[in-house]
Design a protein around this nucleic acid. Sequence first.
DNA 1: CCTACCGATCGGTAGG
DNA 2: CCTACCGATCGGTAGG
Lengths: 220, 220
Amino acid sequence: MTDDATLLETATATATARRPRGRPRKTVDERDDGNRRIALLGAAASLFRRQGFAATTTRDIAAAAGMQSGSPFYHFKSKEALLFAVMEEGMHAALERQRAAVQSPGHAALPASEQLRQLVQVHFGVLLGPGNDFVPVMLYESRSLPEQERNRLAQLISEYESLWMPVLTALHSSGQLRAPVGLARLLILGALNWSVQWFDPKKGASVQDLTDAAMALFLN
Amino acid sequence: MTDDATLLETATATATARRPRGRPRKTVDERDDGNRRIALLGAAASLFRRQGFAATTTRDIAAAAGMQSGSPFYHFKSKEALLFAVMEEGMHAALERQRAAVQSPGHAALPASEQLRQLVQVHFGVLLGPGNDFVPVMLYESRSLPEQERNRLAQLISEYESLWMPVLTALHSSGQLRAPVGLARLLILGALNWSVQWFDPKKGASVQDLTDAAMALFLN
DNA sequence: CCTACCGATCGGTAGG
DNA sequence: CCTACCGATCGGTAGG
């Protein structure tokens, strides 16, 4: 969404310079622009998740968004830019949701085990909720991202992981978590992330069940 | 390797019929054939793992095996057949290693927690050992496999998982594993499988360290 | 296993 | 955002 932000700002600036007379047409343009752009992001996220980045055609994405084959390149300068936007959008949403949980009133007063439960539950929600294709794409397609853009994402990922560390450290100190904190974080997030491969909302377990099972598995 | 076995038997039969006089040239032919085929499998596994199936070219694979662009199709009838052979080879190797551990003398007498430790350690070895690209490919590229062949693999996978179930059930009964056995298996294998994404043999931890951390994390 | 090649598809662009 | 299109690449094959 950084490229995005830039594009939007540029568009706004240009339109603003022209605003002087008449109904501000730019408002309509921007809104449509946003819709089409968002439709492309959603279509890309869904297809990248189901088929993978390399196996998905920009024509597939265009068709899923109701456009002609060349039109995605009006909104994104390349297929890779689309991938990056999907991933950044996913990480921003995940960070926002996780921060909202951490900052909710009374959260800090909760025992560490309950704080972990919240992190786990929100994480499952971000991965497995309906229409949440963005984060799975970012987890499983980062190989397809050029190094420079992967580095830009790395910072968001590291912010996300840093939300877990104080909680895991507290649990380790109290003896509820026996594994070394660093490896525990990698193993725990792995167990959660892998659920993307097997979770089926139509089958037995719910996100709540998964959360309970994970807590029972990880904590003494 | 099923297609394979068929091919090899056919070649042997043909060559045997021609054996009557002179140095048995077929021996050389067969050896070369096997070598080239194995070279292709290894190159494919390595490239599929690093770049993904769809992003890897049959020309890449041919070059890595020292061949010309059309030559892989002398050994495999399609790119997908190559992928399937890589995955089946990986699963066979994993099953073989895991069974060898389970059937080793004295194993049945071990406490369930030690049996789990063995499963975990062998699993990490299969995933992270030098040159072990076959199983990671099978874990992360099964999306790219046609349904029919994915079903053929499903049986091997289910055999592999069935090695874990009695051990997990025993641990659950004794209270050392608190999560429901079915979800525990999925979460545990997920934690291990995800190590493919972050493990770096040149960095701190060894497979032994990972095994210890996993055991401390999962068991009371 | 190589040489030479084909048909299809793909990411991306110009110009409107 | 569409139309029309280009150059490159890709999986696969024939024929030796």
